[in-house]
Each structure stands twice: as structure tokens, then as C-alpha cells.
């Protein structure tokens, strides 16, 4: 019985209503919890001793599936070493998750990064601003419906490739015909 098992049973015991799914693959344990339960689940981890550390916080976009986003928390127990992954599923139309930055200061910047690149908002975050991109950037680049595009150049003779031609085959399916017109300021003629 590893430390992740004991943490898991602690969460199960105290939050039986909050557990959506529990799985294990390739030796990694994943626990999907309800959005309302994540704050409590992570404070249980903080109190569990060990010590546990919030190693990473990130998100995945499952577009066009719904619920669209997953916010992923990687917890590491330092002694004895063990890992546990927590996940929260977030609908695309209401991308809000409770912030855990109050209990885990390491989540502060990580949540800002997820907000910046995915547009998922963290309620209760002390300072939710863009972190990697400029403040006036439009859109959230790691979303699947934000296509990769060629950088415009300041000399003649180069026609920037339209984003649809850069999106790999297979990945482009499900992306609407012209989702980028809204935030990409370039003229329509280029496409």
C-alpha cells in the first residue's frame, strides 16, 4: 500500500459525494473529482503529511468532446515517494474552477498559466492575470480551436500559410470552418 492509496482512501472517506471516477494505468493512479470537491480534496492532501507537494497543475483540451477541459493536478509524496493525479472536468461553456492557490502557493502561477493559455478561470484566485502572453493578447492559444498560424513577416514575396493548412489532418476535424477570423487580425485575402 503506497501513500497514494492511503491518500485516496482518505479522500474517499471524507468526500464520498465528490468522486467521479478512479482509475489506474501504466502504474499511475488518477482520481477524477467533482469540481466542487477539488478544493477540499487538495486540502486533505495538504494535511495528510508525508509531505505531499503539488508538483504541477495544468489542463487538457478535449475539444470537441464535452466536458471539454480537464484541469490536472499532479501530487507527489516525497517520503516515501509516490504520485497521485487528480482531475477535474470542466464544461466548455462554463470554464470556472475553484482556485487552490490559497492552500498551495505553487498553484498561483500555474493557474495563471492555465488561464492564460486555456481561458479557464479560477474563482478565488488572488491575482488572475495573463502570465506568459502580453496583457492585450486575444484568445487562448492552447485551445484546440485556436489554430497554429504562420508569423506575418515584414517583407514582400511571402504569403503566410493560412492556419487551416497547418492544422494536421485528423486534428482539424471538428474545428469549424473559420474559427480564427475573430481574433486573427489579418486580411481575409490571405486565406
Amino acid at each position: 500500500m503506497g501513500r497514494s492509496h492511503s491518500l485516496l482512501s482518505m479522500i474517499q472517506e471524507r468526500l464520498p459525494w465528490g468522486i467521479v471516477e478512479e482509475s489506474s494505468s501504466r502504474g499511475e493512479m488518477t482520481l477524477v473529482v467533482a469540481r466542487e470537491a477539488i478544493l477540499e480534496a487538495l486540502s486533505i492532501a495538504k494535511e495528510a503529511g508525508g509531505p505531499w507537494m503539488l508538483t504541477d497543475l495544468t489542463a487538457v483540451d478535449r475539444f470537441p468532446a464535452e466536458p471539454r477541459f480537464e484541469v490536472v493536478y499532479h501530487l507527489t509524496c516525497l517520503f516515501p515517494p509516490d504520485r497521485l493525479r487528480l482531475k477535474v472536468q470542466v464544461p466548455g461553456l462554463d470554464p470556472v474552477v475553484p482556485s487552490v492557490a490559497v492552500i498551495w502557493p505553487s498553484a498561483n502561477w500555474a493557474e495563471r498559466e492555465v488561464y492564460d493559455l486555456y481561458g479557464i478561470r479560477f474563482s478565488g484566485h488572488p491575482d488572475l492575470r495573463r502570465i506568459l502572453l502580453p496583457d492585450d493578447w486575444e484568445g487562448h492559444p492552447l485551445r484546440k480551436d485556436y489554430p497554429l498560424s504562420d508569423e506575418p513577416v515584414e517583407f514582400r514575396g511571402v504569403e503566410p500559410k493560412p492556419p487551416a493548412k497547418i492544422v494536421p489532418k485528423g486534428k482539424a476535424e471538428g474545428i469549424s470552418a473559420n474559427p480564427f477570423g475573430s481574433f486573427d487580425g489579418r486580411d481575409e485575402g490571405a486565406r
Partner: peptide, 8 residues
């Protein structure tokens, strides 16, 4: 603090 900031 090193722990809670996720320092490694």
C-alpha cells in the same frame, strides 16, 4: 515555503 511553492 520551499515545499509549498513547489520548489525542487
Amino acid at each position: 515555503d520551499a515545499l509549498s511553492y513547489g520548489c525542487t
